[in-house]
Design a protein around this nucleic acid. Structure first.
Lengths: 221, 221
DNA sequence: TAATTTACATGATATATGTCATGGATTAAT
DNA sequence: ATTAATCCATGACATATATCATGTAAATTA
């Protein structure tokens, strides 16, 4: 499947690439539809390629000893997922699962490696993106270690607002709890608190943010 | 200083480099002594170079809103510190401070950049190291979010055992608490518990691990 | 050696948050 | 539609851990 108006320009990671390289990606990707709850990859397994998300949301998480998922990020349109394990030359440290219907292009490992090593600019983009992520994760460690659950929920809601944009946040309470790093019940209680304070509206599972500033004040930043 | 006795071979990051490139580093580094509590760099500032630790320990941390440090790692002999911010093209997200007397070589930004871009193998080593770190930090986020303070202390003690090797662990209780992400008092109480169980000996500030397996059982892994 | 600071240690107390239990409300499937 | 399966919600309760207070020991400086 090759589209003349390429869908690959929207990936930050590929921004630096020339039209002919983008065209090469067009010729080598394999478009797949993932349904809700379908895994893209599992921790412990060696990568066989990378996933380029055209639409839909994917949770990236690590499984704790007790079976509790720790969600590390929610990937969405424009994100490339699964490439870190390739460069670390280790099996995946994280799993990824679609949490809604997704359109995703798969790029095979060999092709991706070839691409990276023949395009220094791409290598630099990747190095830049991963470096940013290391920094962000350090901040996340601090947040988990030092902030209260309420503050963390506030932080995560703002993160999700950015990801879901004009759409309402649409995660199960359990996934939300696993992102915040808390019990589902606690998440539900705190959401109610935020609702009562007028920061959010709750429409079934969906959460609509109506006062970001209010939430920001709850983050403790 | 001659090639064969170079101090730069011991840095994992430079393993892939040929003798003549190592020689170039020898000619361009600036050896400095840092004393206890002396900062190498501060979060929010743009990097001016990288630090290669020949001896001594450095805490790498982020400052919380309340002034509490979150220690992300303890860097030691053979570690190169401060290069992630260079590739992210952002100011430091972390600060670094010597926690004992250190011998450290400074490589200027321009020289380091030149080095990286003229040595594809070095670029790959760096990409590999950073990728590993992203994975490790995801695990750290999970640990902070899901494990009890006692379990986290156990995890950190094992990490520190690796870093201090045959030496006793030598951190202030406050630094240890800031690594675990807890209150100093709690750390002290839990250390006593581990001592009573025969896992460690306490010699003033110093901690000697005498039963790693016992500690491992406390990690909950 | 005395003096001052810093770090270590322990007790008392409050509370945020996890856990267990139960019921209602959506959502999905037949 | 009717059933089945998730998911959401709320209450009661237990407890790990932070905070506050205070004293002792160790390290640093004068």
């Amino acid at each position: 499947m090759s589209l003349s108006t390429s869908n690959f320009y929207k990936f930050t990671l590929f921004e630096s690439l020339s039209p002919d390289v983008i065209e090469k990606i067009e010729q080598n990707h394999k478009l797949q539809t993932f349904k809700n709850n379908q895994p893209l990859f599992l921790e412990g397994v060696y990568p066989t390629g990378v996933f380029c998300i055209h639409s839909g949301k994917v949770k990236v998480f690590s499984l704790g000893e007790t079976g509790k998922e720790q969600i590390i990020r929610i990937a969405s349109e424009g994100d490339v997922v699964g490439f870190r394990a390739i460069f670390s030359e280790e099996p995946f440290k994280l799993s990824a699962t679609a949490i809604e219907k997704c359109e995703i292009s798969f790029l095979k490992l060999d092709f991706f490696n070839e691409l990276v090593h023949s395009n220094p600019l791409l290598m630099q983009s990747i190095l830049k993106e991963i470096s940013k992520e290391v920094g962000e994760r350090a901040v996340a460690i601090k947040t988990m270690a030092q902030k209260s659950v309420k503050e963390r929920l506030a932080v995560i809601l703002l993160v999700l607002e950015d990801i879901y944009k004009e759409d309402m946040i649409n995660l199960t309470r359990e996934d939300l709890a696993n992102f915040v790093g808390t019990a589902t019940e606690t998440t539900i209680r705190l959401l109610k608190d935020f609702k009562d304070k007028g920061y959010i509206e709750i429409h079934g599972r969906k959460i609509k943010i109506i006062d970001s500033n209010g939430i920001y004040r709850e983050t403790g930043y």
